[in-house]
Amino acid sequence: MIFEMRTYSFLPADLPKYLKHAGEVGRSVRGNDYGVNCGYWTSEFGRLNQVWHLWRYESYAQREELRTKLSQNRDWVDGYLPVVQGWVRRMDIRIMNPHAPFVPPQDAGNVYEYRYYRCAVGKVGNWIGHFKEALPNRQKYSKIVGLWQTEIGQPNEVSHLWVYPDLNARTEARARLGEDESWREFQRTGRPYLRELNNVLLQPTNFSPLK
């Protein structure tokens, strides 16, 4: 199984137009017939005026097959793409291998945090190994949705998706986590493998599977 995180960047005036057309046309045309949509968000803090959407495929071969079929869907090619092409200023993709089960939350009304770290060359596996050892304790403060290593798009990158009931809950969880000595020990152990840390806070769209 592989995952693909797609990130589209917009000018402020174009983002609402894209979301309207994606919700009314794009999702109905594509559905889950060309890859399973796991989440569809807008960025709230961090990088602005972006849409992030996560897709799941059984394999690289299936992704190639389904993307080819999508490019032959006339409703997609003639009815969707020509409308949104002028609004999208930049597109980025990450093809990612999972290192933990994908666990969607059961409730709605959440906010999400996507954290993506660049590691020293050849050290992603080392960091992930230490992180997975620390993960049971880390999840006392908030729940992880997914953990991945990027294979295509961003080399030497690991990313993880977290869910919170709201922004206040995130602030409180991060504060309590910072006081946890076992987490501090993990940070000391994992820090030598890291070169860059980034995050973005994500708000689900009204058509996102993850709410």
Rank of each mutant, 00 (worst) to 15 (best):
R94T: 04
I152S: 06
R90G: 13
Q106P: 02
P136C: 01
A169Q: 15
L161G: 02
Q154G: 05
P155C: 15
I128D: 00
H160K: 05
P136Y: 02
L147P: 01
I93G: 03
Q154E: 05
V163W: 00
R90E: 12
N126P: 06
S142I: 03
G122Y: 03
R94W: 04
E151L: 12
L161F: 03
K132S: 02
V158A: 05
I152W: 06
Q106Y: 01
G146M: 02
Q85H: 12
L167C: 13
P136Q: 04
W162Y: 09
E151M: 11
S159P: 02
V88A: 10
F102A: 09
T150N: 10
G153H: 11
N168L: 15
R115T: 12
M96H: 03
H99Y: 09
W162T: 03
I93W: 06
H99I: 00
W87K: 15
E157I: 02
N97G: 08
Y112E: 14
G125P: 02
R118F: 01
Y164Q: 04
E157L: 14
H130C: 14
D107I: 06
W87G: 15
I144Y: 09
Y112I: 13
R118G: 03
Q85A: 07
P101Y: 10
G153L: 15
G122A: 10
V158R: 00
A120L: 11
E151G: 01
I93R: 14
V121F: 12
G129M: 05
P101I: 08
E133F: 07
Q139N: 06
R94G: 13
A134N: 05
C119S: 12
S142A: 10
P104R: 12
S142W: 13
Q149V: 06
P136L: 04
H99G: 03
G122E: 05
Q85D: 13
R94S: 14
Q149M: 10
M96I: 09
D107R: 11
W87R: 14
R138T: 04
N156R: 13
P101A: 09
D166V: 01
L135F: 13
P105T: 07
N137P: 03
Q139S: 08
A108C: 14
N110C: 09
Q106R: 08
W87E: 15
D92M: 10
Y114H: 13
